[in-house]
Design a protein around this nucleic acid. Structure first.
Length: 564
RNA sequence: GUCCCAGUAGCUCAGCAGGAUAGAGCAACAGCCUUCUAAGCUGUGGGUCGCAGGUUCGAAUCCUGCCUGGGACGCCA
């Protein structure tokens, strides 16, 4: 792991950097290898406390290069190690050749003052160095409600963006509106059928129509607003109007649902605008000039196989219309032209087969496919009372994000969705999510926060203030040190979650921190008027934990209640 | 047939740019509220990390093959 300096460089990272540098220097001084061949020094935090605060496997890594036994290498490194400014208390060589570092307890001295000072900024780093990243997510067709899978993608994308921003990336959230093409024509036709039905006349839904309740509502509303006006208009203008009306209605609903779910986009990008601005022909021209297209069977094809795709892909169909891919290529060209260093797309599992052709197209356009990432969100299975609930958008019986929020609350839904890795399927237990009980992990973390708030409140009532005048060095109980070490990890956890696109690491972290807090709470008493010095120090610790839990939950878009 | 994801404790899942004795929650069992919120804590039991090879000083982690579950393989979007 690489920790770059910056205004929010945290205490633990500084300690680690110093130590790593000292080790690297010692390796070279011991003439075990040259600077060029030096492997990256990896410092890990051993799970077992008997293995110290930090450990490195550098001696094992050097065994091959230096052609010596790892334990002997370790000894030579330790001999050469300059321990000045490292806060090292003791060094062990253990196991096959691990070097274990035991730190003096003061290595975390600056941590609490730093957290209290940074407050809501604690967790920020410059890991991303201001790199511009665009994350496109949700991008559901405006033809129906958001369902479970979309909700998971929304939570994932949103938290990923939060994490990236906190890790020093310049993030933009974008929603791609499929407001052109077949599906939107189908929307118009579906609205038309529902409108006529709402007028009390017979009308068949189109073959691939949208059967959701929302379309029926649109039909009703149209009748209420316009009566039978549109029944007598010529069909072309009627459909044009219904298309616009339906689109506006559906988009409004999507925006509302997402906003209520805590997801706001910086940019809503219209597919239609690609047509209107000539971006599609532009992209096609460029591909043709680069000789990446050809004509066959009356269609225009992209030579995506040149870039590792399974087969070439149709860009312009026999009937002259575009496939879905074509505007999407223009769209991604536009994204790159807007100057993003990195594009991240969050797609449902059913779109994974689409990745290769998109990568191919991006390369054909002359861009580096390494700057294009697709995160696939695996399926969500909904369970209620132990039974799997089938979802089908077509039957209109799917469980929507709206229903889910109403049932379980935003906090629980978001927490559940960012608890797991995006590429594992997720079983969503509705009973568990809505249960106000200790089975529900979201409460566990929130409870830790609320508990601290109560303590701080009572402390204030007894005249204790949380400020910078405390002595951290008296916090030497095991559970206090456990908390301190965990607090110190937070900025790195966030940076790690950002660079690896793994927002669920924040959930893990916040849960672990809450667990340490509960454990501490049961073992030690914070408020003790008999011992004001210790009370002050512990209150500072509590405040720091509160800040960190709140910041972590904030990244997840989950509330941090003061009382429960 | 090809490709993607998953397979780790009874269940749901972490861990996977190789590292020391594989973790958590739930479920089970046994304890802890005259003391800052018991939505909590403490302890116990529970594992051939799907299977078989390979690379390595060292593999849940990397490579190959196979098995199982899910998904994708359109001139649909």
């Amino acid at each position: 792991m690489v920790y770059r300096g910056g205004s929010h460089m945290n205490v633990l990272a500084q300690t680690e950097d110093t130590l790593k540098q000292a080790i690297a220097t010692a390796v070279v001084d011991a003439k075990l290898t040259t600077e060029e061949e030096m492997p990256t020094v990896i410092l890990e935090k051993p799970k077992d406390k008997a293995h110290g605060d930090f450990a490195t496997n550098i001696a094992m890594q050097l065994a091959r290069i230096a052609k010596k036994a790892p334990r002997q290498i370790a000894e030579e490194i330790v001999e050469q190690l300059n321990q000045a400014d490292t806060s090292i208390n003791k060094i062990d060589i253990a196991g096959p050749g691990f070097i274990n570092f035991f730190m003096k307890e003061d290595y975390l001295t600056d941590l609490l003052p730093t957290i209290l000072k940074e407050d809501t900024d604690f967790g920020k780093t410059n890991a991303g160095q201001g790199e511009r990243v665009q994350v496109e997510f949700v991008s559901v067709n405006p033809t129906g409600d958001l369902h479970l899978g979309h909700a998971r993608g929304a939570a994932f994308g949103d938290v990923l963006c939060n994490v990236l921003a906190t890790a020093g990336y310049d993030v933009e959230r974008e929603y791609y509106i499929n407001d052109a093409g077949n599906q939107i024509d189908n929307l118009a036709l579906s609205v038309e059928a529902r409108y006529i039905q709402a007028l009390g006349q017979e009308a068949d839904m189109p073959e691939d129509g949208y059967h959701g309740e929302d379309i029926k509502e649109i039909g009703q509303t149209l009748v209420e607003e316009y009566g039978d006006k549109w029944a007598t208009e010529d069909r072309e203008s009627r459909l044009a109007f219904f298309k616009e009306y339906g689109l506006k209605y559906e988009l409004g609903k999507l925006k509302k649902d997402l906003a209520d779910f805590g997801v706001e986009f910086d940019n809503w990008f219209s597919e239609q605008s690609l047509y209107d601005d000539g971006k599609i022909t532009e992209a096609l021209d460029q591909l043709t000039k680069g000789n990446y297209t050809y004509e066959k069977d009356g269609a225009t094809w992209l030579r995506s196989t040149d870039f590792g795709d399974d087969k070439d892909r149709v860009l312009i169909k026999q009937d002259g219309s575009y496939t879905y891919l074509t505007p999407d290529i223009a769209y991604h060209k536009d994204k790159f032209e807007r100057g993003f260093n990195q594009l991240v797309n969050v797609w449902g599992a059913d779109h994974h087969g689409y990745i290769e052709r998109m990568r191919a197209a991006i390369q054909a356009l002359g861009y580096d496919a390494d700057n294009f990432d697709v995160k696939i969100i695996q399926m969500v299975n909904l369970f209620e009372n132990g039974e799997k609930i089938r979802m089908s958008k077509r039957t209109g019986k799917s469980v929507s994000l709206r229903e889910l929020m109403d049932e379980a609350g935003v906090d629980a839904v978001r927490y559940f969705f960012v608890s797991r890795s995006n590429d594992s399927q997720l079983d969503f237990d509705l009973n568990l999510a809505r249960s106000q009980s200790n089975d529900n992990p979201v409460y566990y973390v929130q409870y830790a926060h609320a508990r601290i708030c109560t303590m701080l409140e009572q402390a204030a009532a007894k005249g204790f203030e949380v400020d910078q005048t405390f002595d951290q060095s008296i916090l030497t109980a095991e559970k206090e040190l456990d908390l301190l070490k965990k607090l110190g990890e937070f900025p790195q956890v966030v940076a790690d979650a950002a660079t690896k696109f793994t927002p669920h690491k924040v959930t893990q972290y916040v849960f672990d921190l809450a667990s340490l807090l509960h454990s501490f709470y049961n073992a030690e008493k914070v408020l003790d008027p008999e011992n004001p010095k210790r009370t002050k120090a512990r209150l500072a610790l509590m405040q720091a934990v509160k800040i960190t839990i709140a910041n972590g939950l904030g990244l997840m878009g989950v509330s941090a209640p003061v009382k429960m």
